[in-house]
Design a protein around this nucleic acid. Structure first.
Length: 332
DNA sequence: AACAGCAACAACCGCAAATCG
DNA sequence: CCGATTTGCGGTTGTTGCTGT
């Protein structure tokens, strides 16, 4: 059993220039056939493990000094999307860079950079949490250009808001499924998004046109994210669906950029964490839903198959939901 | 000037795979 | 083949230096 350096009375902590020199001299003279034996040969009061790390991460002559370049950054992002946290594998593509350096660079900079741009650093996909919708819903509901809100126009606004909610729901489900998380259609809606359940049941209108947008290849989340520029093209991904669902009369034109620019939806937007599909998250103390639905819609189903009730509500959408879920389940 | 907060980086630890006897 | 030892990897922690108050 390996004992720690402390247990062996060996030195820990930062290396001194003298120690570095001893290590370099020793390796130049004898090589590093056995890291275990090397400290004795070099006259160092360090464990072999510490010597190896110091050599591979800092003293090796082929170490590339200086900041990681933009090009290297691009490579790291791409390889991470491909390989995950296989730092040594990623490092093998970047001559002179160590796995430790890349790992640190990822954890301290790239991770934050991706998060700032609304990208989940684990999945490299846009973070389409359903609750991102909530700040937008009031705007959707109030974006009628006319000052006089007819009941019909209000209902229509709400229908479109619900459509947006559903669209984001699909994106979230796809993301969860593709990331390997199992989502049962029998889970209550609150499991997926406690705050959005009531919003989703507001409208029970057919939304086949929404699905047309979804089915368009442009929706594929990964294809919509430029890993190099870290710019999610979330807007463009959603646009096809809205071209079909949004009415131009009394509604802000979804194509005019006015909505997107003012909604702050994907720029400088603080994107919350992905919701977990785990029943652990089935708490009732979630943030209150700041969306007030009309009375007739204010009783979201609470039974165990509530989600199924909602998603499979009408025949038109039933077929599409099954397709979407099947597709997502089959995807690697 | 002193302090707190934060980011960046170096180094350590634990575990698992590979190698050795 | 099997247990012990070594090596490699990834996650985490500790230290240092910078910046803002």
């Amino acid at each position: 059993m390996e004992r720690t350096a402390e247990e062996n009375g060996l030195k820990k902590g930062p290396w001194t220039p003298e120690e570095d020199q001893k290590l370099v001299d020793c390796i130049q003279k004898y090589g590093h056939g056995s890291w275990k034996e090397l400290p004795k040969l070099a006259g160092l009061n360090r464990c072999g493990k510490s010597c190896r790390l110091r050599w591979t991460n800092y003293l090796r002559p082929d170490i590339k000094r200086g900041a990681i370049t933009d090009e290297e950054e691009r490579v790291i992002i791409d390889l991470h999307a491909e390989l995950g946290n296989k730092w040594s594998a990623i490092a093998s593509y970047l001559p002179g860079r160590t796995d430790n350096e890349i790992k640190n660079f990822w954890n301290t900079r790239l991770k934050k950079k991706l998060l700032r741009n609304g990208i989940d650093p684990d999945t490299h996909m846009p973070r389409t949490h359903l609750d991102t919708l909530l700040p937008v819903l009031p705007q959707l509901l109030s974006c009628n250009s006319s000052r006089t809100h007819t009941w019909e126009s209000v209902v229509r606004s709400q229908e479109n808001a619900a459509r947006l909610a559903k669209l984001l729901l699909v994106g979230n489900i796809l993301q969860l499924l593709k990331s390997g998380t199992t989502v049962s259609p029998h889970l209550p809606m609150e499991t997926i998004s406690p705050s959005l359940g009531s919003a989703l049941v507001m409208s029970r209108t057919p939304w086949d046109s929404l699905m047309m947008g979804l089915q368009s290849e442009r929706f594929t989340p990964k294809a919509e994210f430029d890993t190099l520029t870290c710019q999610p093209s979330f807007k463009d991904a959603l646009r096809p669906a809205f071209q079909n669902t949004m009415e131009t009369d009394n509604m802000m034109d979804i194509n005019s950029n006015k909505f997107w620019e003012s909604s702050n939806m994907y720029t400088d937007f603080e994107v919350p964490d992905l919701v977990s599909a785990s029943p652990v998250c089935l708490s009732t103390d979630q943030e209150p839903n700041n969306f007030t639905s009309p009375d007739e819609f204010s009783n979201p189903p609470t039974t165990s198959n509530a989600m199924e009730d909602i998603l499979m509500d009408d025949e038109a959408s039933n077929y599409y939901w099954k397709q979407v879920l099947d597709q997502a389940t089959l995807s690697p």
